[in-house]
Design a protein around this nucleic acid. Structure first.
Lengths: 186, 186
DNA sequence: TCCCTCATGTAAGGTGTTACATGATTAC
DNA sequence: GTAATCATGTAACACCTTACATGAGGGA
């Protein structure tokens, strides 16, 4: 079975939605996938080129008045098959999520408790912000999904994942902070 | 303030422990940091070279009988300062953790519920495995930390983070699976 | 006038993985 | 004899980010 990189599959997936151009794909990712996937233009356009070269999509240039030409991509049957085959396969292995805060904390004995507390408070605040972002994306999906959008159900599930793991991380921060505050008092 | 990449800081941090050679660093990472950071030899040796060139560490070659020569690195005052300055700074922004399962799930409406359930069950099983790994690392730290190792406290905190977020992910899997099983029955 | 949005694209550089080369010793 | 461990290193490639180039139209 031929295989492409994750970026390619992500783009194939997005091409099943109403987003059909490089620009639209970028917007879609920034709005909807941003909490677990991101792609830059530097990847999108070369990947779209690869996708057409491989016969996974065909391109139609559409002229619009008042706006630049738009390259619209449409999945071929081959493209749909490649996507489906990838979707069906379970992941090979869990990836290691690099976490800079944990890295700093790991060497925490080389700095003051005060400093560590500061790092953790900052982290907690950033996590809380992220949580709020998830909630607002969730709300905007719930508002727009009045019609029988079957995608919405899946999108909400990915957001739920983000919310749950973020809450767990925030709770961990609180637990860690308590530990240090207790130490400092005693 | 001069700045290096994360890999460099990670290695500077490890050089504060008793691990002083490229080989030892790799082992240490694979055993202790693997749940939130990993580095390959292809990064370690060039980075060690950079670290010495920048005067952050000095190298002493030690001969051992029966074993190859060992390049032992020791942090200079400059190296210690650079590390401390980095430790003190809060992270700039949360990184986006790419999650292949969420990516597949996002496009889940293009496959059968059965297939989605299969993907989720596999994911849940891999997460459970990861959790077990964390517990066993935790146990080995608790066993070896009978002496007054002040690092152990911090290492255990990073593991606690891993455990908590993994549990949250597992619970999410269960919730998502329930949702699909309910749908299938009705 | 100047900036924003729409729109496509590339070049350079940073970062990371994989596979290989080398070679001694030790354990089975 | 063969595999594993100890030990250092590099080259090729894969992947990704950032910054830039280009250019039209619309709004303040």
């Amino acid at each position: 079975m031929s295989s492409y990189n994750h970026t390619t599959y992500a783009i194939l997936g997005i091409l099943t939605t109403s987003c059909r151009s490089g620009y639209a794909i970028k917007q879609f990712i920034d709005r909807s996938l941003n909490h677990f996937w991101k792609i830059s233009y530097g990847q999108i356009y070369p990947t779209l080129k690869l996708i057409t070269e491989e016969g996974l999509a065909v391109i139609q240039t559409s002229s619009q008045q008042g706006k630049p030409d738009r390259h619209e991509y449409e999945l071929t049957d081959k493209g749909k098959t490649v996507l489906r085959e990838w979707l069906e396969q379970p992941i090979e292995q869990l990836s290691v999520e690099r976490n800079e805060v944990l890295l700093k904390l790991f060497f925490g004995s080389h700095q003051s408790k005060q400093q560590t507390v500061y790092i953790l408070q900052d982290y907690k605040q950033k996590l809380a912000q992220r949580y709020e972002t998830y909630v607002s994306i969730e709300n905007s999906i719930l508002e727009h999904a009045t019609d029988e959008e079957k995608d919405a159900e899946y999108w909400l599930l990915t957001l739920d994942y983000g919310k749950r793991t973020t809450v767990a991380a925030i709770e961990w921060c609180e637990h860690a902070l308590q530990q240090f505050e207790f130490k400092e008092r005693s």
